[in-house]
Amino acid sequence: MRFTTVSAILLACAALAGCASSSGMDDVLAPGPSSETTSSITRPNSPVPTASVGTELRDAPAPQMAMTAPIPEAPIPGTGSFAGSEPSMPLPAMRPAIRTPSEKPVIRKAAIVRGEVYARRFRDAKPINFGRATSPRQLAVHGVDVSRWQGDIDWARLRSQGANFAYIKATDGGDHLDPMFRKNWREAHEAGLRRGAYHFFYWCRVASEQADWFIRNVPKVPGALPPVIDVEYNGESSCKRRLSREKVLEKMQVFMDRLERHYGQRPIIYTAPDFYRDNLRGAFLDYPFWLRAVAQHPSKVYPGRKWVFWQYSGSGLSHGVAGKIDLNAFHGSEDEWHDWVADKSS
Score class of each variant (00 low, 15 high):
47 P>E: 00
21 S>A: 15
40 S>I: 01
24 G>V: 06
27 D>A: 09
35 S>P: 07
35 S>Y: 08
40 S>Y: 13
26 D>E: 13
29 L>S: 04
25 M>Y: 03
46 S>A: 12
28 V>N: 02
49 P>E: 05
30 A>W: 01
48 V>Y: 00
41 I>C: 12
27 D>T: 06
37 T>I: 14
27 D>H: 12
40 S>G: 10
46 S>Q: 13
46 S>G: 06
40 S>M: 12
21 S>W: 13
20 A>N: 07
43 R>W: 05
31 P>F: 05
34 S>W: 03
24 G>C: 08
23 S>A: 15
37 T>P: 01
35 S>F: 10
41 I>E: 15
24 G>L: 10
37 T>S: 11
22 S>N: 10
32 G>P: 01
33 P>V: 01
44 P>L: 00
38 T>E: 09
23 S>I: 07
22 S>V: 07
38 T>R: 11
35 S>K: 09
36 E>Q: 04
30 A>P: 03
31 P>C: 06
35 S>M: 09
21 S>G: 14
41 I>H: 15
48 V>A: 05
33 P>C: 03
40 S>W: 07
45 N>E: 04
47 P>C: 01
40 S>E: 06
28 V>K: 04
39 S>T: 04
41 I>P: 08
43 R>F: 07
21 S>K: 14
38 T>D: 12
49 P>V: 01
31 P>L: 07
23 S>K: 15
49 P>A: 07
20 A>S: 08
36 E>H: 05
29 L>W: 09
25 M>F: 08
34 S>L: 03
43 R>V: 03
36 E>N: 06
28 V>F: 05
35 S>T: 09
34 S>P: 05
30 A>V: 10
44 P>Y: 03
40 S>C: 07
43 R>D: 00
33 P>G: 00
20 A>C: 10
36 E>F: 01
28 V>T: 13
40 S>A: 12
41 I>K: 14
40 S>F: 09
30 A>T: 08
